Simulated scan of single mutants.
Amino acid sequence: MLAIRFFRSQSAYNPAPTTARASGGTGSFGRNAAARPEPSNATAFPIPGIGSGFGGTSQATASDEIRLTKTDLDTFQQRLTEVQEAFGREDHAALRRLATPEMVSYLFEELADNAKKGLRNEISDVGLLEADIAESWREGDRNFATAALRYESRDVTRDRISGKIVEGQADQPTETTELWTFMRQNGGDWKLAAIQQPG
């Protein structure tokens, strides 16, 4: 359902989800969450011009729209760092706290796949460069918001036994732009619900 809700606004932009890290690492950081096929009637929204301020929700009805504040955007920035670093630490408890159960299942699957291959994905020095709200809406007692986030991080994949880097560069931060959808229920904390990586 979240994958469907990702694409509600007008645009010719049609993101092609991928499961590879933009930084080139082996781990896909739960990108499978965005790789499910779209139904034929799903439409796409444009990534807003990063740095242009809050995006609109022009096609949402008045009852669907929610208004976000800078505090919400600050929370999304915090979640970006927390989720990335928790994933790099393989901190299952933190991921359960920061993401929805559906998203947690994708992240855990990714961690298990890395472990099976004898790999460990390390993520550090996460820093948000620019962000915009692409869309925000309400469904019953749940609020959703999709943010376009451009950030940099040090992202490497190491052999679990030797510690040798097999992908990425420890001394070279990489830049990534992604769409992160967050959800909160009954006014609770925002949690990561989905990640979309533009193709």
Rank of each mutant, 00 (worst) to 15 (best):
A3D: 14
A3I: 11
I4C: 12
R5L: 14
F6S: 10
F6I: 06
F6P: 01
S9I: 03
S9V: 04
Q10W: 10
A12H: 12
P15I: 03
R21I: 04
G25Y: 00
G27R: 00
G30T: 02
R31H: 09
N32M: 13
A33D: 14
A34L: 11
A35F: 10
A35H: 09
A35I: 02
P37G: 07
P37H: 05
P39S: 08
T43L: 13
T43C: 12
F45T: 12
P46W: 00
I47R: 00
P48G: 04
G49Q: 13
I50S: 12
G51F: 04
S52E: 06
S52C: 04
S52R: 03
S52V: 02
S52T: 05
G55S: 11
G56F: 09
S58E: 10
Q59N: 10
Q59I: 05
A60H: 09
T61H: 15
A62H: 12
L68E: 06
L68F: 04
L68Y: 01
T69R: 07
K70M: 12
R79G: 02
R79H: 06
L80I: 06
E82N: 13
V83L: 09
V83S: 04
Q84Y: 03
A86D: 03
F87C: 10
F87K: 00
G88P: 01
G88Y: 00
G88F: 00
E90S: 15
E90P: 02
E90C: 13
D91T: 03
H92C: 04
A99F: 03
E102L: 14
E102R: 08
M103W: 00
S105G: 14
L107D: 01
F108C: 03
E110Q: 09
E110D: 15
E110A: 12
L111A: 07
A112T: 11
A112W: 07
N114D: 15
K116V: 09
K117P: 05
G118L: 07
N121K: 07
I123Y: 00
S124Y: 08
L129T: 08
I133F: 03
A134Y: 00
A134P: 01
W137I: 09
R138T: 07
R138S: 12
D141S: 15
D141G: 14
F144C: 09
A145W: 00
T146I: 10
T146D: 11
A147K: 00
L149Q: 07
Y151V: 06
Y151C: 07
Y151K: 03
Y151P: 03
E152C: 10
S153T: 06
R154H: 14
R160D: 09
I161H: 12
S162D: 08
S162G: 12
K164E: 13
K164A: 15
I165A: 11
V166I: 15
E167V: 05
G168L: 04
Q169L: 13
Q169W: 10
Q169E: 15
A170P: 04
T177F: 07
E178Y: 03
L179N: 02
T181N: 10
M183K: 02
G188K: 05
W190K: 01
K191D: 04
A193L: 05
A193N: 05
A193I: 01
Q196F: 08
Q196P: 05
Q197M: 06
P198W: 02
G199W: 08
